[in-house]
């Protein structure tokens, strides 16, 4: 069998598969099976600006975790902290081992990059502390895109973390 014939046969099989897949799609009407709509997360400072923050209540609530409880989880296996603030604020200081995933860029970043987060991980998202809105929305996005089910929003955010004496990485003190 020549290579051209083999490739033609292969194309025929792929074409048949495509037709069957199309027929399968046509028989179902509950698309999308996995949510693919990009989530507009805005940024951590959205709530400070006020006006557009009015849409936040439409998002379902995510469970929160207190700073005290979260501090006890730093460095534990299967626990991932995700920092929803800007990369500049992340560089100024963050929870040790936290991933930097700025809320405003999260949807596009997750579409093109993978995160070292397993679906079984406990994921704790946090923002500055004005409210849980963007950290909560980021948690929802992580649930959609990575399949994470155990997600908590850090109550009081970064401000509460510092107030509770939580350990930090980065920032000017580390030189």
């Amino acid at each position: 069998m020549t290579r051209a014939r083999l490739l033609a046969d292969l194309a025929a099989l792929v074409g048949i598969s495509g037709l069957l897949a199309g027929a399968h799609l046509g028989l179902r009407d509950e698309l999308p099976w996995v949510a693919v709509e990009p989530v507009d997360l805005g940024s951590c400072s959205l709530q400070e600006e006020g006006a557009e923050g009015a849409e936040a209540p439409s998002r379902p609530a995510m469970p929160t975790i207190s700073a005290g409880e979260a501090i006890a989880l730093v460095g534990r296996g299967g626990v991932t902290f995700v920092d929803a603030r800007s990369s500049e604020r992340f560089a100024d200081g963050h929870v040790p081992g936290a991933l930097c995933l700025p809320a405003g860029d999260a949807a596009s970043l997750l579409a093109t990059q993978s995160l070292p987060v397993a679906p079984s991980d406990l994921v704790i998202t946090y923002c500055d502390g004005q409210g849980p809105g963007e950290a909560e929305a980021l948690g929802l996005l992580l649930r959609e895109r990575l399949g994470c089910q155990e997600i908590r929003v850090l109550g009081g955010g970064w401000e509460q973390w510092l107030a509770a004496g939580g350990p930090t990485d980065g920032g000017p003190d580390r030189g």
Binding site: V34, A111, T112, S114, L115, R145, L146, G147
Partner: peptide, 8 residues
Amino acid sequence: RNYQAFPY
């Protein structure tokens, strides 16, 4: 999705 290797 869980493989985190394909665009959404």
